[in-house]
Design a protein around this nucleic acid. Structure first.
Lengths: 201, 201
DNA sequence: GTTCCTATTGATACCTGGTGCCAATCGAAA
DNA sequence: TTTCGATTGGCACCAGGTATCAATAGGAAC
């Protein structure tokens, strides 16, 4: 009932809209116990756009991000790829990848980078992970850049399966190690590089 | 200039709005060379909501998914959790989880569900995946619902490490099997799993 | 021909959630 | 008492619609 000061009301208003951008001025009237004109003057002062503008902005944001989602098929950015031989991918650990409590990356993101790379390096139309033996050498933290290196260890000729070793580093430090067995369809793609002994470095 | 048939126009309209949901009726009038009334009758017939409703729906979708992102820390919906004993999580394979080419789920999503569950089932403030030995029994396809069951196999008492076995099914069929070694901080939590009890309902 | 039917267009009233502007009121401080 | 900021009321107007009724054009059926 008691009126808040203008300053307090502005804070309240900002907070309310932040936590629920779908509120109309009329609903805010109810919540803040002031007239709708006051709400509108407040929004004006605080440069909070009207409901429809807010919704539009949200819709635009989500629309744009949906459009760029196909890139998300591969976790990490592949910077080097020699089919059936080796590959390198970069992946930076950001806020959405870590436990909020500890700032340590969830294991499956590190795995996802390695897995994506292991699959990408296989020169075949269809490549699926059959199994993997993995080890997290040390936790990876917010902001760290993971460099995953994949080496195809055995047989593009071998029927159906390839072994891929992936080691992920932060700087010089090894943070992840995985041995993947990748199932592949029989047909290799165009430039059928028969590199069966394909070991590198 | 030449008029399209109604059927053709309806197809056009659907397509236009699909690729740009921000179009007003007036703009559609320009694009389809019919009156605004016709556009509106068409939308009515095709049950395409008005611009504002479309924007609102998009905003809601994005808002909900943003709000549930912290929950997204866990891939899959945990439906049962007995700390240090067992847990069950559900995860439906959707468009964004599959290879667009084959409709088969990327391995790391299936892994992520299992990994999330393995970590969640540990009754400890900090729990991290140390290593894992996993096997993909068969590919999982678009639309399939993965039911992951986790069993803690050894020692909440044991210092530092717990073994968790996770088996994922689609229906009766086993699609994934993993043995996780989870690193845990010494201190078990009281009664509640404060960190990540957040399920989506 | 005429009738029937669909598709299209026009016109009007009304709705929500606002903006913009002007005037009135209230309360406290100078 | 005057003055001033804060608040409120009222009204015109706007976009982007819904809802409804009427008018018109063009074929196909009889």
């Amino acid at each position: 009932m008691e009126r808040l000061s203008k300053r307090e009301r502005h804070q309240q208003l900002t907070k309310l809209i932040e936590e629920n951008p779908f509120l109309t001025d009329r609903e805010l009237t109810r919540l803040l116990k002031v007239s709708i004109q006051t709400i509108r003057l407040d929004r004006l002062e605080l440069s909070i756009p009207e409901l429809r503008e807010r919704l539009k902005m949200m819709a635009e944001r989500s629309y744009d991000s949906v459009r760029s989602l196909p890139l998300d098929e591969i976790i990490g950015e592949i910077v080097d790829l020699q089919l059936d031989k080796s590959g390198i991918s970069l992946f930076e650990i950001r806020g959405e990848h870590v436990f909020s409590r500890s700032g340590i990356a969830r294991g499956h993101y590190v795995f996802a980078q390695a897995n994506s790379l292991a699959v990408a390096v296989i020169n075949d139309e269809v490549a699926l992970t059959a199994s993997a033996d993995i080890r997290f050498a040390r936790p990876v933290r917010l902001g760290e850049k993971c460099i995953a290196k994949a080496y195809v260890r055995s047989g593009s000729s071998q029927r159906g399966m390839s072994k891929v070793e992936v080691i992920t580093y932060v700087g010089e430090e090894k943070v992840f190690h995985g041995n993947f067995v990748i199932y592949r369809s029989q047909t290799a793609l165009a430039g059928e590089s028969g590199a069966e002994g394909g070991d590198i470095l």
